[in-house]
Every structure is written in structure tokens, then in C-alpha cells.
Design a protein around this nucleic acid. Structure first.
Lengths: 350, 350
DNA sequence: CTCCATTCGGAGAGCGCTCTCCCTCCGTCT
DNA sequence: AGACGGAGGGAGAGCGCTCTCCGAATGGAG
């Protein structure tokens, strides 16, 4: 056993590298972590020893002493229904939005050697598990994407004083950091655009009104339209799904057949609305102009492609990750929120 | 400091619990891990002490000795392009398929206290990182979803003898376990169905033909059609995206205007094809019957809803996770593969 | 009553790393 | 020349847990 290189299976430890380099464990550790001054010659020797032995530091051992795991929880909360055989078979991921968030988060974390642990928190039990998981020190903190407003998880995170950042402003005020987009500004962009396009009989399909984002988009839109001299804007509430968009559009058409412009609170619903409009023989944008929200892949997949309000989801997600790491480094800092500005993307639907 | 309960911030250790319960660390450990016999009375005392102190085991310390992390890597490989400012802004997640895989994996792992770490391996560097990550013992193994066939990661995993299971058969034979669906059977279901619907001028839109799944779907379809007496089936290759489906359908219509049935290798492309057909005034299913593949959310979002080949993605993903854990427990076991049977879901497009 | 088998709790040695001392070796200043 | 300071390397104490021994206690058999 003591002859030659030890078998690859038993991965080498700091001790092995130290022996190979003829220095102490401490020195190897210093070189690896780039801390304090180490003689360049010795650094070189150590590096060679690391390469020779194929050493990779054991994160568990490191975590044990540093109390850092190099992992954070990426929580999708309130996903799916609370029942059903497989609670994971749901539309959360179907919404390309989530992928963009994940991408943004990874984009920031990966260069820093931090990895996201994917978690779903759709039931009471799952939420408890998430909290326990974090308390066990399995992750240094959490970023959270909620799909509904009643989500109790943010409050639970605050209560357990675990470092966390939300993707959107919580429905109930909470001492917790978050990133969000200026929904009202986005809605105003849509309103300005529709009016500029000469639309006079404008309606809107809102998202679920218990969600702050939906409220803001609706009120922002109405305020902007009022400023343009249209105090009354018909509204139908949808559920952010393709199908709910269809239903809402049917309703809208039934109640206001003369509608010539629609602001839809997300692209998925807008896509549904588009189909209903076509089905009813309305040309888009000729008869009716449609503006969505999100600039998701549904926007480009629609026919015609959707004019929509784009928000920088990746950047927002990256910022969310940055804020979390900041908080992990210094849990005492005050909570903050960062609001991003949306922009109008004009395509063929308006 | 020694009076009363210590501050919540300093989380209690086994030692603390042991002291509180008046037993040794070893006994507490035994109770917590349910190993060996411990006197029921003492068990009760320990449990109470655990509850009182709010103890949660430190996973890093445990991992250090057990050499298990309770985490696995969920790798999306070959995601996005190898360039671009943000390699994560891609369609991988846009495909609801990935969410279903994630759901299936979590569904199996969570009850077992194992969590998936989300990783992207889209560049050479990223792949190296993934391997290093696993070698560091950050995760016990990996499940891998490849989005293209040239992916070198499976081979790298084999080389490093890391426990891993793939979601689909690798393009090049490799000693690695995988789950897959019987693509040929699925294609046959589609062929049988189209023929049963009286279609005589049937064509197909294939996926990228460097992907084994695409090849199998195509050859399976052709073989089945041949068995029905249709030796020649026109084919256009697509790229599994919505847009490529549109382009392919345009081509098909141009070359074979008389087509009355199309088997499309995935739903996303089928959705695109549907739009092109409508645009050309073809009624579906009246003039042309369309059958997709995957039964993704695109299938139900399409108008008309797609007849498609469903494969049990969640079950497959769960099985993949199961196989991985098996392998983690016993790395010596021979590689295996499990093939799932698809089924036909008839909707309005055929 | 003695002896052995069996059950069950405790002691303690690590797992692989980090980090705080401490010691040595120089170079420099007086 | 002696003293002092700074740079750089080593020793060793844990981090919190698991797990192998070991020993004590108990019960049953001879």
C-alpha cells in the first residue's frame, strides 16, 4: 500500500498532498485557499503535488469548519396543487419564466462556486422540510420564487431568521429582501403604446388579483389609461394560464364586442387570447391590438408574435442571488429591495 | 451563558442533546439514526431532549464520516449555445419536459431526504466543473438530461467512475445506466393510428437526426408504415423547436401538397406545424391529421389539442433517480437500462 | 451458585479540513 | 554587534458527527 501512488479510489487528502510536497497541511491549505503569503517556490511545489495526487478538497470537511456549504436553496414555492398523485406534475416549469430565473441565478452563482439546490415547497410538509433543510446547514440561504400570494414560506424564513431573498414583493409586508419589476411602469408602457396606436376601446385581462404583481399591472394600466382620457377600462380576471386567457377573452368579446385593444397581464394568457380572437374572426392587430407581459417564449411562439412588456428576468434573478450572498456574508445588514425597469417590445400583435 | 437555554443562533450539537438527556453522544446518535436497540425509555428521553433543544443534525459533520452528502446533481447538459452573453437564456426550460423530469426526480428523492443540485453543463469549462464538483463529494451521483447527442459528459462521468444515470440512451454506446422510452413503439402507435384514421398520404417531421431518439422515432414510424403497405414516407428534419416545426411543415406542404397525415417527432414542432397548416387553409383534422410526440403542455395548448404519444416522463425520471441511488449504494453493480412503454393519447388533431 | 451469552450504554478515535497560535529565520535599524 | 520586527511555515486544536470497541448489567442454563 505504501508503494507508489495510492489507488485512485481512495481520494487523496490534504495530508497526502502535504507529504508529497514535503510541507505541512497548513501550508497546502494556504496555497489552495490563496490566503496569506506563501513562498512562490513552495506554492509551485504544492500546486504540482496537488496535480500529481489529483487532490480535490472535501467540501464536507471544509463546511464543517467554515460553516459554509457553498450551496443555496432555489425554492419554487406554492407549486402545483396541494393534492394529486404527483404534486410535481404541474405547470410551474412549463412557464419558461422559471427557467430564466434559474439561469440568472446560476449565472451569478457559478463563477463563485455556489450551487443551487432545487426544492419545491407546495405543501405544509414540504415547507417544513425546506426550513429544516436550511436549519441543518444544508444550504447557506434561499432564493424563493412564489407562484401564489398566500405562500407562508417567506414568513417562515423570516421567523427562522434564515437568509433569503424573494423574486417578487411579498403579498404581506415582511422584513425580507426582494427583487421585483416596476409593474406599474410596465403597464403604463402598454397603455401608452395602445393609445399611440390609436386604440380607443381598450380592455385588459388581469392576472389573479390576490397577487401583488397582478394588482399593480391592473392599477398601473388603469391609471395610465385614465391619464390618457380613458377613465373606464373593462377588465376580466384570469389565472395566468393559457386556458384562462382564452376564457377571459371570450368573456371580454361577449361583453365588449367593440374592443380594439387588449392589455393582457402575461404572455401565456395573451397567447390564449390571440387564439380566441382569431377564432372569432378578429384580425390582430388590424381589428384588435394585443399587448402581453413578460416577453416569455410564448411571446415569440404566438401568431402573430406578441408585443409585450419585457422585464430583465435573468438580471433580476442574478441580482437576487447577489443580494442573498451579501446577506449570507453579513446576516446583520438591513433588508433591501431592488426594482427593475421593464421595457416595451413591439412585435406584430399591435 | 450557562444559564437557561443557549441562544437559538448557536445551534445545539449532539453533545448538548446528550447532556440534556443525561446520556452519551453515541446514544443520541443511535436514537436519531434508529440504529441498534436502545431502551424505549431512554429513546423517549432523548427525543424529548432533541425537541427541547431544537436540535438538527449538522449534515456537513455527518457527511464527513458517512461519505454521503444526501444530494445528487441534476445536470442539464448541452444546454443553450456555447456562446452568447448569458448561456442560460435558452429554451431548455422553456420545454416543459424538463420540469417534468425535475418533478419526477424530486418525487422519488425527497421522501428519502435527498436533494437535487441543479447544474448546467453547456461548455467545456462547465463540464469540467461538474466533474470536479462530483469528485469533491458535493453530491453522491448525477442524473443527466442531455439535449444533444455530441454531449461528452456521459463519457466523462464513466471515465471518472462517478455514479450516474442518463435520461436517454447515449448516442455512443457507453457502460452507463439509463432510462428511455420505446421510441419505435411510440412511432408505431402513431402510424397505426393515422392509418386507422384512413390517411394514405402520410409524411413525418423528424427531430434532429443525430439524436438517437429522433432516429428511432423516424425508423420506427417508417417501418410501421411499411408494414401497412406504405413503403415511402416523406420526411423533413426539424430541430425540436416550435419554429423548426413551422419551417418543416412549410417544406412538407410545398413538396407534398396532398399530404393528409403528419407524424411530428415532438409536440413543440407539431404546434408550429399546426399553425402553418391553418395558415395554409388546411383544416385539422379534416384535411390533415397531426400526431405529435411527448404529450407535453404544448399538446393541450395547441388548437386543436394534439393527438400525441405520451411517455411517462415523471415515472421515468423517478426510475432514473431510483437507479442512481441504487448505484450510489452499490457502485459495483452492473449497468442497467429501463425502457418505458409509450401510449397514444387521442385528441382533436387526428 | 457459577458461568456464559446477550443486551445496551459509554468512551474515544477519527473523518478532512481551517485557523490560531507559535516558532524560526532573516533583514534592518541603532 | 545586538535587538527588533516581519514574513513564512508548522503544530495542533477543534468543527459535529459516526462507529467500533469495551464494559457493565442482566438473564438463563448447567
Amino acid at each position: 500500500m505504501s508503494e507508489g501512488r495510492p489507488p485512485v479510489s481512495a481520494s487523496p487528502t490534504l495530508e497526502d498532498v502535504a507529504r508529497a510536497a514535503g510541507v505541512s497541511r497548513a501550508t497546502v491549505s494556504r496555497v489552495i485557499n490563496g490566503v496569506r503569503n506563501v513562498d512562490p517556490a513552495i506554492q509551485e511545489t504544492v500546486r504540482r503535488a496537488v496535480a500529481d495526487t489529483g487532490y480535490v478538497p472535501n467540501r464536507a470537511a471544509r463546511s464543517l469548519v467554515t460553516r459554509r456549504t457553498g450551496a443555496i436553496a432555489l425554492i419554487v414555492s406554492g407549486a402545483g396543487t396541494d393534492g394529486g398523485e404527483n404534486p410535481f406534475h404541474n405547470q410551474v416549469f412549463a412557464d419558461p419564466f422559471f427557467g430564466r430565473v434559474a439561469g440568472g441565478v446560476v449565472g451569478f452563482l457559478r463563477p463563485r462556486g455556489v450551487h443551487p439546490i432545487l426544492m419545491f415547497a407546495e405543501t405544509r410538509e414540504a415547507r417544513a422540510q425546506v426550513i429544516a433543510f436550511l436549519r441543518q446547514g444544508n444550504a447557506d440561504g434561499a432564493v424563493l420564487v412564489s407562484t401564489h400570494s398566500e405562500d407562508p414560506l417567506p414568513a417562515m424564513l423570516v421567523e427562522a431568521s434564515l437568509p433569503a431573498v424573494l423574486f417578487a414583493r411579498p403579498a404581506t409586508p415582511l422584513p425580507i429582501s426582494y427583487v421585483d419589476v416596476a409593474h406599474r411602469t410596465g403597464a403604463k408602457l402598454a397603455a401608452d403604446h395602445l393609445v399611440a396606436r390609436g386604440r380607443r376601446r381598450v380592455a385588459t385581462i388581469a392576472g389573479p388579483l390576490d397577487v401583488p404583481a397582478s394588482q399593480d399591472r391592473l392599477s398601473g394600466f388603469r391609471d395610465a389609461m385614465a391619464a390618457h382620457g380613458f377613465p373606464y377600462v373593462p377588465c376580466v380576471e384570469g389565472g395566468f394560464t393559457h386556458q384562462s386567457g382564452e376564457i377571459a377573452m371570450e368573456r371580454l368579446l361577449a361583453d365588449h364586442p367593440g374592443v380594439d385593444g387588449v392589455f393582457v397581464a402575461n404572455d401565456l394568457m395573451a397567447q390564449g387570447a390571440l387564439q380566441v380572437l382569431r377564432h372569432h374572426g378578429r384580425r390582430v392587430p388590424g381589428d384588435v391590438a394585443v399587448v402581453g407581459f413578460d416577453d416569455s417564449s410564448a411571446a415569440t411562439a404566438s401568431r402573430p408574435p406578441l408585443t409585450t412588456i419585457r422585464h430583465p428576468v435573468e438580471d433580476m434573478a442574478g441580482e437576487m442571488a447577489r443580494m442573498l450572498m451579501e446577506r449570507v456574508d453579513d446576516p446583520g445588514r438591513p433588508v433591501t429591495s431592488v426594482i427593475f425597469e421593464p421595457s416595451l417590445v413591439v412585435r406584430d400583435s399591435s
